[in-house]
């Protein structure tokens, strides 16, 4: 089963749920931290690092001695990553989406494959949790290619948990697509609810079953409960608003380390997800 953990609003507790869930289960779990712009699951799991790999993307390299300046490469590029103007061809590889269209349409074979560094994939082990996370190169603007690389580590057997980035844009869609169930983590505040509604809409568009984990459940107001009831979205788990949980978090400790009795809650959460996955 592939379980992804997402949220509209940032800072609601995706990583808290992902890491505590993975650590609470007494079976091998593969956790993929797809928040490649600021991965943080490793801070809580403290894995022993076993592997580091540089990830690159294909970009065009033009041999001007073979170029006839027909402009076909620039015409097919939807991102202005390659442009033919007058008697010259220029590439802006930071804008390239690696479709290789320019290489395919070039009539003289003047364009070959070069590469741009996207970042690094890091693998490690923490107890029964195998953690894989991507770390985007500082200055790299596109995260989906890096997220796709991290997702190549999905296991078809056993359980893979995906910690998605916040929001509802391309990086989130890339992280949660082709997963079996989505947990949307939210908090019972107006901002939390607003972004939950956007996230729910996105997950529905992808046609993936989903439920809600309500974090800091005894803060805020009742509107999230009302929304969930009206929409028929199950609330799978509620996590209390406790100072001790925040203190453990601030020290990089898991919630289940501070409150071992909460392991049961996360095991139940997993059971709820398995039950509702279709």
């Amino acid at each position: 089963m592939i379980l992804s953990i997402a949220s509209g609003k940032g800072g609601t507790g995706k990583t808290t749920v992902a890491t505590n869930l993975a650590a609470a289960l007494e079976c091998p779990v593969r956790l993929l931290d797809c928040d490649v712009e600021e991965p943080n699951a490793h801070i809580f799991l403290k894995p022993e690092i076993t592997e580091r790999e540089t990830v690159t993307a294909v970009v065009p390299d033009v041999d001007l001695s073979k170029c006839e300046y027909c402009g076909a490469c620039g015409d097919i590029c939807q991102f202005s990553a390659i442009v033919a103007a007058g008697e010259t061809v220029m590439t802006f590889t930071e804008m390239c989406h690696s479709c290789k269209g320019c290489m395919m349409v070039c009539p003289t074979g003047a364009i070959s494959e070069s590469s741009r560094t996207l970042g690094e994939i890091i693998k490690g082990v923490s107890g029964q949790v195998e953690l894989v996370y991507g770390s985007l190169r500082v200055g790299e603007a596109m995260s989906p290619p890096m997220i796709r690389k991290v997702k190549e580590e999905v296991r078809t057997e056993g359980l893979t948990v995906i910690d998605a980035p916040p929001g509802t844009s391309c990086p989130v869609i890339e992280s949660i697509r082709n997963t079996d169930y989505v947990i949307l983590v939210t908090e019972p505040t107006p901002f939390g609810l607003n972004d939950l509604m956007l996230a729910a809409e996105a997950v529905r568009a992808l046609d993936i079953p989903f439920g809600i984990v309500l974090n800091r459940c005894d803060s805020g107001d009742d509107n999230t409960h009302r929304y969930a009831r009206e929409q028929g979205i199950p609330i799978l788990m509620e996590i209390p608003d406790k100072r001790e949980i925040a203190e453990a978090y601030s020290k990089g400790h898991l919630m289940i380390e501070a409150f071992p009795e909460m392991k049961v809650g996360f095991k139940n959460l997993m059971g709820e997800c398995v039950k509702r996955e279709t």
Binding site: G74, F79, S80, V83, A84, A85, G86, F92, M95
Partner: peptide, 16 residues
């Protein structure tokens, strides 16, 4: 309304 590359495309127009 281009999401990116408007300057590059405009420059291409001026060159052409």
């Amino acid at each position: 309304n281009l999401p990116q590359g408007a300057g590059i495309q405009a420059a291409r127009t001026i060159v052409n």
